[in-house]
C-alpha cells in the first residue's frame, strides 16, 4: 500500500508571513556562490524589470491592467531553478516574472506590455496574456483559477505521451477558492498526474486578505481530502523555495501524482497599478520590505557567508540595468502591430 501522503507544515502556522516564517528554521540548503549569484541575478532582473514597467505605466506607455510581481521574486526563481527545460509552466495575469524566469526575452515581454509588434503576442495579448511554446510557458491567464485545470491538462498530456516532464501551475491565494481548482485536484490525484501546484500566497486577493476569504487559511492543506501532499514554504527565501521544489519535483516525477507547495510571500505594490491599497497598513508593507526582502536576503548571504564582493554584485546590477533599459527602449521603438493583424490568428487554416 502506498504511503498516505500528508500535509506537512514546516513552521508554526500563523496569520501573517511576517511572523510565521521568521521563527521557522529554514531547511538546510547548500548553494555554491555561483548558484546563488545566478539566483540573485534572476531575482534582480525581475525586480528591475517590474520597476521599469511600473514607471512606463505611469508614463502612459502601458495600458489597461498591469500587475507587478515585486516582492514575490524568490518564488518563481526558486521553483524554476528546480525544473528541467521540458517542464511546462502556466500562471495567472501576474506573469512578467514567470516569463523572465522561464528564459523569455525582456525585450519581447516589455514590448508586449506596450502593445507593440515586437511583443511575444505581437501586441495582441498585453500584460496578462503572453506565451512561449519554445520556452514551455503556457501563459498568462486572466480568469482567476482557470490556469489550474489548464496546468493539470498539460500534465495529463505529458503522462499520456509517456514523457517524464511535469507541469507547474502557479496560482494565488484568492484563486485557491475557485471551484475548478478542486475539480482539477481530484482528477490530478485520481490519475496521478505529474503536476506541481504552486500557491503563491501573497496574503491578499485584491483587497481581501486570506483570513477574510478562506475557512482553511493554511492553503497547503487544501489537497488533503484528495490525498495530495502539501508543504508550506517561506516564499521570501529563494533557497527554501528551491529546496522544497527539488523535493516536489522528485516526488512528482517519480509518478506519485500531484503535490502542493504553498509559498508564503508578499506583494509590495498594489494589486494592479490603480489600487490604492487601503486594506493594509503602510507599516505592514514597510516591515516586510525591510525585514524579509528576498533579494536583500540573498545579497547579505552572498556578502557575509559566501565571500562575494560588492564589486561583483555591482557588476550584476549594472548588467541587469542594461538589459532592462534596452527592453524599455525596444518596447517604445517597436512599431504598433500592422492593422492587418486585427483579423489574423482567429482560427488555424485547416
Amino acid at each position: 500500500m502506498a504511503r498516505t501522503p500528508q500535509t506537512r507544515t514546516r513552521k508554526a502556522p500563523a496569520k501573517s508571513a511576517a511572523r510565521s516564517t521568521a521563527k521557522s528554521a529554514p531547511p538546510k540548503v547548500e548553494a555554491s556562490k555561483e548558484e546563488l549569484l545566478e539566483l540573485y541575478r534572476e531575482m534582480l532582473l525581475i525586480r528591475r524589470f517590474e520597476e521599469k514597467a511600473g514607471q512606463m505605466y505611469g508614463m502612459g506607455l502601458i495600458g489597461g491592467f498591469c500587475h507587478l510581481y515585486i516582492g514575490q521574486e524568490a518564488v518563481v526563481v526558486g521553483i524554476q531553478a528546480a525544473l528541467s527545460s521540458n517542464d511546462k509552466v502556466i500562471t495567472s495575469y501576474r506573469d512578467h516574472g514567470h516569463m523572465l524566469a522561464c528564459g523569455m526575452e525582456s525585450n519581447g515581454v516589455m514590448a508586449e506590455l506596450t502593445g507593440r509588434a515586437g511583443g511575444y503576442s505581437r501586441g495582441k495579448g498585453g500584460s496578462m496574456h503572453m506565451f512561449s511554446r519554445q520556452k514551455n510557458f503556457y501563459g498568462g491567464h486572466g480568469i482567476v483559477g482557470a490556469q489550474v485545470p489548464l496546468g493539470t491538462g498539460l500534465a495529463f498530456a505529458e503522462k499520456y505521451k509517456g514523457s517524464d516532464s511535469l507541469s507547474v501551475a502557479y496560482f494565488g491565494d484568492g484563486s485557491a477558492n475557485q471551484g475548478q481548482v478542486y475539480e482539477a485536484f481530484n482528477m490530478a490525484a485520481l490519475w496521478k498526474l505529474p503536476v506541481i501546484y504552486v500557491i503563491e500566497n501573497n496574503q491578499y486577493a485584491m483587497g481581501t486578505s486570506v483570513a477574510r476569504s478562506s475557512a482553511q487559511p493554511e492553503l497547503a492543506k487544501r489537497g488533503e481530502s484528495f490525498g495530495i501532499p502539501g508543504v508550506q514554504v517561506d516564499g521570501m527565501d529563494v533557497l527554501a523555495v528551491k529546496a522544497a521544489a527539488d523535493e516536489a519535483v522528485a516526488y512528482v516525477r517519480s509518478g506519485k501524482g500531484p503535490m502542493i507547495l504553498e509559498m508564503k510571500t508578499y506583494r509590495y505594490r498594489g494589486h494592479s497599478m490603480s489600487d490604492p491599497a487601503k486594506y493594509r497598513s503602510k507599516e505592514e508593507v514597510n516591515k516586510m520590505r525591510a525585514e524579509r526582502d528576498p533579494i536583500e536576503r540573498v545579497r547579505l548571504n552572498l556578502l557575509d557567508k559566501l565571500g562575494a564582493t560588492e564589486d561583483e554584485l555591482k557588476a550584476i546590477d549594472k548588467d541587469v540595468k542594461a538589459i532592462v533599459s534596452e527592453a524599455a527602449e525596444f518596447a517604445q521603438n517597436s512599431p504598433e502591430p500592422d492593422e492587418s493583424e486585427l483579423l489574423t490568428d482567429i482560427l488555424i487554416e485547416a
Binding site: G63, G64, E112, G115, R116, S121, G123, K124, G125, G126, S127, H129, E336, P337, E339, E341, L342, L343, I346
Partner: peptide, 16 residues
Amino acid sequence: GVDVPMPYAANLEKLA
C-alpha cells in the same frame, strides 16, 4: 464590434 477577440494593442483595439 469586429468578429475577433479583443486585441490589446491600442491601434487594434480602436479598430475592433
